[in-house]
Nucleic acid binder design. Structure first.
Length: 480
RNA sequence: CGAGGUGUGGCGCAGCUUGGUAGCGCGUUUGGUUCGGGACCAAAAGGUCGCAGGUUCAAAUCCUGUCACCUCGACCA
């Protein structure tokens, strides 16, 4: 029988353009990122997926620390009475809260919510911890999992239980709270663009789309390769909305008792889904070097031949010493070709091959996952060359994703144009600011308002929906 | 939540219409030959058919319920 064509080896992944959802599910399962569990809508993060989350976490923690935040850990159960304190908040979350009603054999007098988010618990604690202007600002963050009883779930994008960080801060003034809200948004933008190589639009959410209980919500919005938007992170300015019902007050310098101003912000394991859907291709996952569990993999070719393994191990030590996450795949039960395909599927940014022919020339053969370009690197200063290539790959992946987004983002000036554009991308348009128009657009096109960019230079003067005087520049698109 | 589809060794599937207690390919294990894009030969192990009921002498197959996944729609910070 003739050698099967390459296509046949990847046929277990549904082509991306044929059925994006199925492609996503195939990639997620076959790359060993996660698995389904006996709990409805809850996934198990396997080592490969968990490592990506750890790398995101390390990267964020560093930025949080640099900007004066500290990590804490609060209980996962929240008494119902706390949840009820802020009306808008409870209304927003009530439908998706899971409840604990019994402890051991004892039925609880007050049921406990499994946290869907911890504003109410943080606020309760802040009320105990904040007394004086000297205690402020108080800038805390926690890494934990939360539970929301979602009706439909998808690995990473929307699961009943998911892992995230939630920052909660308390400030003396409205100005400081606003500054914090925007600073954290900028940190999220930086994480997405510089680390995950995902271009995002930063901006302000509409009243309709803002967080339950917030005065203002900001988001970073990414675009997936099916043209749909994914909210990658949000930051909220609460003003005194929670401080009043929870009585978070401080004694100011001049002796007045004042309400505090608060913020909260979070990103979740959803970001892993964003990475998959932004960069993945027909061969599977494509990981940006900065969050790849293995940035490079070394494959010995004809490992049994003299010197091959020795050279591979030497290369491994050298690259590892340079602080690069590298793996030597020395399995002898699968062929090189098999390994090529497997590591491409798993998205490793750079493949290095070392075989007799390379050794003869004092080089390693490489292949970039982002461009499939092949070449050779001198063994002598392999680590430096690898580092350089990884930086190039990181940059190029961002450039590719940005080019895709730009190609799928358009200014639109009429309802017809809007409707057409949101079938496969972002529409930037003018909006009168009314809920009616926002709802009409959603009903008739399926698109929701994403956010209002900080640069509000008008691109017209009439609302795309009602034709009345436009107030805002807004991005609309279908969203996850 | 509504409409449609799927669920059979680790993975991908056949069998179901016309009930008679499972079959193929890949993978796995052992031995050998190979090794620069998913190698080959030989031998072996591995499942009671998503789960729970029901009909029947007999259920992967028929009926009911339920769970999970996929598609479209609704809903969702």
């Amino acid at each position: 029988m003739a050698k099967p064509a390459k296509q046949e080896f990847v046929q277990h992944i549904t082509p991306r353009n044929e059925n994006f959802s199925q492609w996503y599910t195939d990639v997620v399962l076959q790359t060993d990122l996660m698995d389904y569990t006996p709990v409805r809508g809850a996934i198990a993060m396997k080592p490969y997926g968990n490592r990506i989350w750890e790398l995101i976490r390390e990267s964020l923690d560093k930025r949080f620390t640099e900007t004066g935040h500290e990590n804490v850990s609060l209980p996962m159960l929240i008494p119902e009475s706390l949840l009820l304190k802020e009306a808008e908040h409870v209304e927003g979350f009530a439908p998706e809260v899971a409840w604990v009603t019994q402890g051991g054999n004892e039925v609880l007098a007050e049921r406990l919510a499994v946290r869907p988010t911890s504003e109410t618990m943080f606020c309760t604690m802040f009320a105990k911890w904040v007394h004086s202007w000297r205690d402020l600002p108080m800038k805390y963050n926690q890494w934990c999992s939360v539970m929301r009883w979602e009706k439909t779930t998808r690995p990473f994008l929307r699961t009943s239980e998911f892992w995230w960080q939630e920052g909660h801060t308390v400030h003396a003034t409205a100005e400081e709270a606003q500054e914090e809200t925007l600073l954290m948004l900028e940190i999220y933008r930086e994480l997405c663009e510089d680390v995950l190589a995902i271009p995002v639009f930063s901006g302000l959410k509409s009243e309709k789309e803002k967080f339950a209980g917030a005065r203002a919500t900001y988001s970073v919005e990414a675009m997936m390769q099916d043209g749909k938007a994914l909210q990658a992170g949000t930051t909220h300015n609460f003003g005194t909305n929670f401080a009043i019902p929870f009585e978070i007050k401080y004694l100011s310098k001049d002796g007045d008792l004042k309400y505090c101003h608060e913020t909260s912000w979070g990103v979740s394991t959803r970001l892993i889904g964003a990475v998959i859907m932004t960069h993945g291709d027909e061969r599977g996952l494509k990981l940006p070097p900065r969050v790849a569990p293995f940035q490079a993999v070394i494959l010995p070719i004809a490992a049994h031949k003299g010197g091959v393994m020795e050279h591979c191990e030497k290369a491994l030590d050298q690259i590892k010493a340079a602080g690069i996450r590298v793996k030597l795949d020395d399995r002898d039960n699968v062929s090189s070709g098999w390994k090529f395909n497997e590591w491409e599927l798993k998205g490793v940014p750079l493949r290095l091959e070392i075989g007799p022919r390379d050794i003869e020339n004092d080089v390693a053969t490489y292949m970039r996952r982002d461009t499939f370009e092949k070449g050779t690197l001198p063994l002598e200063n392999l680590a430096e060359e690898v580092k350089k290539l990884l930086d190039e790959i990181q940059e190029n992946m961002f450039a590719q994703a940005l080019a895709f987004r730009e190609a799928h983002t358009k200014n639109v000036y009429s309802f017809e144009e809007l409707n057409e554009q949101v079938q496969g991308g972002y529409a930037k348009t003018m909006w009168c600011g009314s809920l009616e128009c926002e709802e009409n657009i959603k009903e008739q096109t399926g698109a929701t308002s994403r956010n209002m960019p900080f640069d509000q230079t008008p691109i017209g003067d009439k609302c795309v929906c009602c034709g009345e005087k436009a107030q805002k520049v807004m991005y609309f698109s279908k969203a996850y």
